[in-house]
């Protein structure tokens, strides 16, 4: 369901999605946060970005997971996220959401 909050996605989907977004390329979580921040509802601050990035220091931490959690807290739906992922051109991530 496209109105589902992203925090309510099933665990395997979130896991796969984070794996895709944690890749360090120009379509990863940093780029996503940049595009997301253009939308006032979900704006991510510099401090929040830093907190997300520090997750990579923990064996089980994921910057993407922290970012998605923040976005979900702000009411981001699967449809919203799909739009953002289209904007950054991350086809692989969009595919993850289609299998829900």
């Amino acid at each position: 369901h496209s109105l589902l909050n992203i925090n309510d996605l099933r665990e395997p989907i979130l896991k796969k999605l984070c794996e895709v977004l944690d890749k360090t390329n120009n379509k990863g979580w940093r780029k996503l946060a940049e595009v997301v921040s253009d939308d006032r509802r979900f704006k991510v601050s510099g401090d929040e970005m830093e907190k997300c990035s520090l997750k990579v220091l923990d064996p089980e931490g994921s910057p993407s997971r922290s970012l998605l959690w923040l976005m979900g807290e702000r009411g981001c739906s699967v449809r919203n996220l799909t739009d953002f992922l289209h904007k950054i051109g991350n086809v692989e991530a969009v595919q993850c959401l289609k299998t829900q």
Partner: peptide, 23 residues
């Protein structure tokens, strides 16, 4: 570096590099 409140851009550089090696 966080404590010093300046040069926080270095943190982004380090965490991105850790991410790269980790991947």
């Amino acid at each position: 570096i966080q404590h010093g409140k300046i040069q926080r851009f270095i943190i982004e550089k380090i965490t991105d590099e850790v991410q790269k090696v980790r991947n």
